[in-house]
Amino acid sequence: MRKAAKLIAAASTVAMLLGSMAMVPSTAVAADADTGKKLAENRKKGNCFACHSYEGAHLPGNIGPPLVAMKSRFPDKDRVREQIANPTKFNPNSMMPPFGKHNILTEEEIDHITEWVYTL
């Protein structure tokens, strides 16, 4: 009897979890700009400042264009995300690593970084 009650309780927790998850949009974790910034500045992850300068970047490189006024220059956020996930789509000879296509970053990490880039 006690066992059965536990099972029922467990089942309802699962149902609740599933129910609440269904309410958030597609991604499990909301993209977060602060997390994105940390990932972007991690040398083993984005390492974006190796090539891009942006406000507050420490000793940035200059291989890529400065990341500024992103929202107005790229009204379409998905375009920015795609640039990070697979820059060769826009420039087959791009020097920028294809972070998604080559699994350098996970989809989720790219979402976070996109969110951060969009604040620049």
């Binding site: 090539c51 490189g61 020097m95 080559h102």
Partner: peptide, 22 residues
């Protein structure tokens, strides 16, 4: 490589540029 770069990317097309402090 995973980063998808050729020798020429760094030492032809982007020579003279900075990769971080390099």
């Amino acid at each position: 490589g995973q980063l998808n770069m050729s020798c020429a990317d760094c030492h032809v097309y982007n020579s003279g540029m900075m990769a971080r402090g390099n």
